[in-house]
Every structure is written in structure tokens, then in C-alpha cells.
């Protein structure tokens, strides 16, 4: 059994000032996930009549993107390609002292304790992260042929769970890796082509408007991404946007002719 000292950010609500509170986590099994360790601590807090530490979580199997906070200055903690729910206490040592704080970004205001509001991501998706195709019954498999490399790459982008770690780890609080993954996974597939230029233009415009920062190609986003989305996706989005920018006038001329 391990014992840990946790310095946790406590903030009552979005407007209240927050502060760090130190807790002792006793009887921590190394087989517990980080969230289970917090669950046990919360049980103890509830037993003492204190407010439990609020953190977001849902699937607890690393695929929903709900969980995530900073552990000792690292988004999702020290283990690569892992969400905080899949991080186990064996990654730490008995007697460790850990600082736990929420994602810090103007676009991600703190709701309570470790929970931030990531709806800025939803608004980026709403701006263009979809295809306008009639849905209905599932189409025949392979009715549209897609080169294997494109399908693989599109899937790599689609693996994004929108957890916000890229923004959290970025020294500029930029949302480029998230937006790039969403722009690219559709932009790489035939179904995404009709709206490709429009999509990247709208999503980047909303991204900028949501008060995320500006990318400096530092690569911290890639390093903390639990889905290992690569920096190349950002280059791909840059390329798409510059190309779409060049096409702006050509399109308005065509529209005028129609």
C-alpha cells in the first residue's frame, strides 16, 4: 500500500477564486487507476463531511475524452499515450507528492475544481466537423474505394477524443492539434471533399474566435496526446487553409457567374 500527498486545486464554481488544498491519500493500491485513487479519497472526504473533489469522467477506459487534468505539470500525468483514467498508481512511488490542477486556458473556463468547460471544442466541430451527406441505412462496404494509406491516416486523425490535453500542454494554449485532427480526418476521405475548403476555413475561424492561442510548432501537444496524434496533422491543416485561402476569390467569381 502506498501513501501520497496531493496538492489539489479546489474551486467552488466558475467565478469563485480557487486555491490549492493538500490531502493525504492513504491505503493506495498500485493497481488502482488515478481516478479510483481519487474516488477513495473522496469517500473519505464525504465521511468527514467535506466537499469531494470534482473531476470529470465517464467511460474510464480511455476512449470518451471526459477525464483529464494536470499531474505534476503534465497533461494526463507521466505516462505516454494514456488518459488519466488509464493511468495506474504503479506509475508513482510511495511517498510521492503530486500537484493536481485543471487545464488552464481562457477557452476552457474552470467549472469546479478539476472540471473545465470544453464546449469551445464543440463549437469548432459545429463550424464544420461534419459532412453534409444524406444518412440512412448503412451503405455497401467498399462502395467508395479509399486508398489504404488515406484510410489509415484518416483513422489516426479520427482517433481524437477531444480531451483537451493538447490545449493544456501547449505553452500558447492553442487548439491546433485538435482542430487539425478533425479537419484532416474528413479531408482525407472522399466523403469529405465537397466541403473541404469551407470546412477548414470555418473551423480555423471559430478556433481563433474561441480565444485559443497561436501555434509555435513546439510539439508539446503531440507529446501528451493520449491518442498519439502527430504534429503532421497540423501541417496538413495549414496546407489546406492556405490552399482554401487562395481559392476564395476563384469561388466568389464562380458564384457570381451562376
Amino acid at each position: 500500500m502506498m501513501k501520497l500527498t496531493l496538492r489539489v486545486w479546489r474551486q467552488k464554481n466558475a467565478t469563485a477564486p480557487g486555491r490549492f488544498v493538500t490531502y493525504e491519500a492513504k491505503n493506495v493500491s498500485q493497481d488502482m487507476s488515478f481516478l479510483e485513487m481519487l474516488d477513495v479519497l473522496n469517500e473519505e472526504l464525504i465521511g468527514r463531511g467535506e466537499e469531494p473533489i470534482a473531476f470529470e469522467h465517464d467511460c474510464r477506459e480511455g476512449i470518451c475524452g471526459s477525464c483529464g487534468f494536470m499531474i505534476d505539470g503534465l497533461a494526463h500525468g507521466p505516462k505516454r499515450a494514456t488518459t488519466v483514467c488509464q493511468l495506474h498508481m504503479r506509475s508513482f512511488r510511495d511517498g510521492d507528492s503530486l500537484t493536481i490542477e485543471p487545464w488552464r486556458a481562457r477557452a476552457f473556463p474552470v467549472v469546479k475544481d478539476l472540471i473545465v468547460d470544453r464546449s469551445a471544442f464543440d463549437r469548432i466541430i459545429q463550424a464544420g466537423g461534419f459532412i453534409s451527406a444524406p444518412t440512412g441505412s448503412a451503405p455497401d462496404a467498399n462502395a467508395i474505394l479509399i486508398p489504404k494509406e488515406h484510410a489509415d491516416l484518416a483513422f489516426d486523425g479520427a482517433a481524437c477524443i477531444g480531451c483537451g490535453a493538447c490545449v493544456a500542454a501547449c505553452p500558447n494554449a492553442a487548439a491546433m492539434l485538435f482542430t487539425a485532427a478533425k479537419v484532416s480526418h474528413l479531408g482525407l476521405l472522399p466523403q469529405g471533399q465537397p466541403e473541404r475548403d469551407d470546412r477548414v476555413r470555418k473551423m480555423v475561424t471559430v478556433m481563433d474566435g474561441e480565444m485559443f492561442g497561436s501555434c509555435t510548432n513546439i510539439g508539446e501537444c503531440e507529446a501528451v496526446c493520449p491518442k498519439e496524434i502527430r504534429l503532421y496533422f497540423i501541417a496538413r491543416m495549414n496546407h489546406d487553409l492556405i490552399k482554401a485561402g487562395i481559392k476564395v476569390r476563384k469561388m466568389s467569381q464562380q458564384a457570381a457567374r451562376i
Binding site: 496538492r7 486545486w9 490549492f20 494536470m70 505534476d72 505539470g73 503534465l74 500537484t99 490542477e101 488552464r104 486556458a105 481562457r106 477557452a107 500542454a169 505553452p171 500558447n172 494554449a173 492553442a174 481563433d208 480565444m211 485559443f212 492561442g213 497561436s214 509555435t216 513546439i218 510539439g219 508539446e220 503531440e222 507529446a223 501528451v224
Partner: peptide
């Protein structure tokens, strides 16, 4: 733009790569 994007800085922040 980047300074405005993070008005509250981290108590602890590490760079990985």
C-alpha cells in the same frame, strides 16, 4: 494572442519534447 489565451498560468508545468 497566446498570452491572452492563458490568463491563469500553471502552478507547475513541465515540457516533454
Amino acid at each position: 494572442m497566446s498570452y491572452d489565451a492563458r490568463p491563469v498560468s500553471y502552478a507547475q508545468k513541465k515540457a516533454i519534447q
